[in-house]
Amino acid sequence: MIDQAWLRQRLTELKLGFMFLTQLPLRHDAEVAKGDLARALWSAPLVGVVVGFAGAIVFSIALVLHVPLLPAAVLTVAATTLLTGALHDDGLADVADGFGGGATRERKLEIMRDSRIGTYGVVALILSFMLRVCAIAELGDDMAVLAALIAAHAGGRAAIPLFMHIVPSARADGLAADAGVPSQTVSLVAVVIGAAALLAGLDIKGGIIALLLLAGAGAFMAWLSWRQIQGQTGDVLGALEQVGEIIVLLIAAAIVATPR
């Protein structure tokens, strides 16, 4: 029999995950203490499942209305971006601006905290949106898009707690520092959920390839963020999600495009 207190705690953590990673209007009356978010981040890939499902619904509606594939894909990415409040997109842009435009660690962190966007950030966002839109349009079929979006959004978020567990925060304050450090158990649960979504959304071969590429991308991001700013920030985590999402969508598109 499931322990009721344990279940309530997990449901609270799931709600915190949705509150932090989406724009859904959820209420949480209790004060969120430092460490609460870190404990809740096992839910990040589950949040990704919901975001991907929402995007797939938009794509299916667009097809029913006879919207061509390319604008249907644009609407799909717009919907997922709206649902997440462009949280990860903002991180990608800030990392591109900071890592590309700052000469010192301090200057890079200053640029990343600046709300203004620069040339590197604009280019990064353009490339990100183009790659995701083109990959979704290539999938064509609404069921293929559903599987790919769930895999991409879950897989892209699954590495976030593990990344936070391994790479220390670059700042004493800020979003990532305030969240705390996810435990090894939280990180492992998120990875397992993300891996399951990848294997279910892609075929076995594609899922394994995605896992390997995501691991490589995570290792590269860890090396790059340490080299650039000696740690990670919330922006780095957002960029990590975007890179992972793109990788999975491109793999899904490649599977569809490969002759059987």
Results as ranks from 00 to 15, higher is better:
residue 236 V to K: 03
residue 165 H to A: 15
residue 57 I to S: 08
residue 64 V to F: 10
residue 141 D to V: 04
residue 85 G to A: 03
residue 66 H to F: 12
residue 163 F to M: 15
residue 214 L to S: 03
residue 248 V to H: 03
residue 121 G to E: 03
residue 33 A to R: 15
residue 247 I to S: 09
residue 38 A to W: 01
residue 103 A to S: 09
residue 153 H to K: 04
residue 97 D to N: 02
residue 207 G to V: 06
residue 50 V to R: 01
residue 212 L to E: 13
residue 185 T to M: 11
residue 21 L to P: 01
residue 128 S to Q: 14
residue 219 A to M: 14
residue 117 I to A: 11
residue 48 G to Y: 02
residue 73 A to L: 02
residue 126 I to S: 07
residue 57 I to H: 03
residue 229 I to A: 13
residue 101 G to F: 09
residue 24 L to R: 03
residue 12 T to K: 13
residue 208 I to N: 06
residue 57 I to P: 01
residue 240 L to Q: 15
residue 7 L to I: 05
residue 112 M to W: 09
residue 70 L to K: 06
residue 226 W to H: 13
residue 133 V to R: 00
residue 147 A to S: 13
residue 219 A to C: 12
residue 42 W to R: 04
residue 260 R to L: 13
residue 194 G to W: 11
residue 207 G to M: 08
residue 3 D to W: 08
residue 162 L to M: 15
residue 175 L to Y: 11
residue 12 T to G: 14
residue 105 R to W: 01
residue 180 G to K: 11
residue 253 A to P: 00
residue 64 V to T: 12
residue 99 F to G: 00
residue 199 L to C: 08
residue 1 M to Q: 08
residue 96 A to E: 04
residue 66 H to Y: 10
residue 17 G to W: 01
residue 223 W to P: 04
residue 90 D to A: 06
residue 186 V to G: 06
residue 162 L to V: 12
residue 143 M to D: 06
residue 75 L to E: 00
residue 77 V to T: 00
residue 170 A to P: 09
residue 255 I to T: 15
residue 135 A to S: 07
residue 26 L to T: 07
residue 70 L to R: 10
residue 47 V to I: 03
residue 20 F to P: 05
residue 57 I to E: 07
residue 5 A to T: 08
residue 130 M to R: 02
residue 230 Q to M: 14
residue 97 D to Q: 04
residue 16 L to R: 07
residue 98 G to N: 11
residue 92 L to K: 07
residue 229 I to M: 14
residue 12 T to R: 15
residue 21 L to E: 02
residue 192 V to Q: 06
residue 75 L to Y: 01
residue 163 F to D: 14
residue 13 E to W: 10
residue 83 L to Q: 04
residue 253 A to H: 00
residue 96 A to D: 06
residue 176 A to Q: 12
residue 179 A to R: 11
residue 130 M to N: 05
residue 115 S to Y: 04
residue 259 P to T: 02
residue 206 G to A: 14
residue 91 G to M: 02
residue 216 G to W: 04
residue 257 A to S: 13
residue 173 D to W: 14
residue 107 R to F: 07
residue 29 D to N: 12
residue 79 A to N: 00
residue 248 V to R: 02
residue 145 V to E: 00
residue 117 I to M: 13
residue 163 F to I: 14
residue 192 V to D: 07
residue 93 A to M: 10
residue 100 G to C: 09
residue 26 L to C: 05
residue 8 R to L: 12
residue 188 L to N: 11
residue 205 K to Y: 14
residue 77 V to L: 03
residue 163 F to Y: 15
residue 240 L to W: 15
residue 103 A to E: 09
residue 67 V to F: 04
residue 203 D to P: 05
residue 71 P to H: 05
residue 247 I to D: 09
residue 152 A to E: 00
residue 158 A to N: 06
residue 188 L to D: 09
residue 107 R to G: 05
residue 95 V to P: 07
residue 54 A to Y: 05
residue 132 R to H: 00
residue 158 A to H: 05
residue 85 G to W: 01
residue 223 W to I: 11
residue 82 L to S: 05
residue 18 F to N: 06
